[in-house]
Design a protein around this nucleic acid. Structure first.
Lengths: 159, 159
DNA sequence: GAAATCACGAAAGATTCTTGCGCGCGGGGA
DNA sequence: TCCCCGCGCGCAAGAATCTTTCGTGATTTC
C-alpha cells in the first residue's frame, strides 16, 4: 500500500464517481470518465489492489431502522501509555454501539461515534460500560440532532 | 420514507451484507442470504426506494491520496436561534475541508469531521475560516492519530 | 371455505463483465 | 533521425450477471 500513488486525472474522476455512487456499473463509470469499459475496470481493480479504494459500503438510514440515537463521545483516560491506549482501542471494538472510533490528540484521547436504538440504551451504555471501563477518566457526550452534511471522506476539486 | 418499515430476517441479512460490501453482485448477495436472485434484487430495490438504503459509497484511503490530516472540530455558537443554526449549517456545506457535519446538543452546537492535505492547511482553515465565521464562539479541535474502529453506521446481531 | 394477495423461483432476453489481442502513442538508445 | 520497446487504450467475443415475465404455492382476508 504505497503512501503516494501516481494517479492521473481519469483516476481522480473514477474515485469521485465511486465515492458518490459505489454501485455504479462499470460501463456507466467508464462513460462518465471518458474511456471505454475495459481500461476503466482495470483502473478500478488497480485502485482497489493498491489500497486507494478500501472497500464499498451501503449507507443505511439509521432512524428508519429503529436507531434513533446517534451520539459522539469524547473519552479522556487516566494513563496514556501505549499499551493503555491499545487496550482501550481494543475495548471499543467489542462494543456494538460504537460504530467508528478514533484515537485523537487534544483535550481527549478517543472519540467514539455511537448509534443506539433509544436514549435509555445509550445512557446505560455510557454509565455501565463506558464510564465504568478501566482507566476511563472523563466522558463527554454530544447527542446529535441531525446530520448537516454527509460527503465522502475525500474532497475533489471541480475539474 | 416511512420511519418504521417492516423488515424480515432476510432484509436484515441483505443490509448487513451490503453494509460490508456495497459492490457485491446480486447473485452473490442472493446466495448469501439464502434466496434466488430475482426476489433478492426486488428486495434491494425496495430498500433503496423506501430510503432504508441511502446510497452506496467507495471508501477511500485518505493518507494514500495525500490527505494526511483528519480532525474533528467542536463548535459553540454565540446564539442558537433556529435561523442561526441553519446559517451555520449552510456554511459548513460550502467548506470542502468539512466532510461530515452534525448539529449536536451538549457542550457544543456542531461537530465537524474535517480532512486536509496537511497541518498548515487545516490550521489556516480553523483560524481564518472557522473561528472567523460569524456567530462562532468556541472552536475545540481534536486531531486524529489513527482510526481504531470502522464499521458501518448500523450494528447487526450475530444471527 | 373461496378468493385475493403476496413472494418465491424458473426461464429467457438484455445488459454487463471480463479476457485476449492488436493498435497507436511516447520515451530511450544506437 | 530512426528504431525498438513498453504502456495503455479500445475492439470483439464468451462468460457471467441483471432484469423482466410468468406460473406456483403459501398465507391472509372476507
Amino acid at each position: 500500500m504505497p503512501l503516494k500513488a501516481d494517479l492521473d486525472a481519469i483516476d481522480w474522476k473514477i474515485l469521485r464517481e465511486l465515492q458518490n455512487d459505489g454501485r455504479m456499473t462499470n460501463v456507466e463509470l467508464s462513460s462518465r470518465v471518458g474511456i471505454s469499459a475495459p481500461p476503466c475496470l482495470r483502473r478500478v481493480r488497480r485502485l482497489e489492489e493498491i489500497g486507494i479504494i478500501r472497500g464499498y459500503r451501503a449507507l443505511l438510514n439509521a432512524p428508519a431502522l429503529g436507531m434513533d440515537v446517534v451520539a459522539f463521545c469524547l473519552i479522556g483516560l487516566h494513563h496514556q501509555a501505549d499499551n493503555e491506549l491499545k487496550t482501550f482501542a481494543e475495548r471499543t471494538r467489542g462494543w456494538p454501539i460504537v460504530r467508528d472510533a478514533w484515537m485523537v490528540s487534544g483535550e481527549s484521547d478517543f472519540l467514539l461515534h455511537c448509534v443506539a436504538s433509544d436514549l435509555g440504551t445509550f445512557q446505560t451504555f455510557v454509565i455501565e460500560e463506558l464510564a465504568s471501563a478501566p482507566n476511563v477518566d472523563t466522558v463527554r457526550t454530544a447527542l446529535t440532532i441531525r446530520r448537516v452534511k454527509d460527503e465522502g471522506l475525500v474532497a475533489f476539486s471541480a475539474s
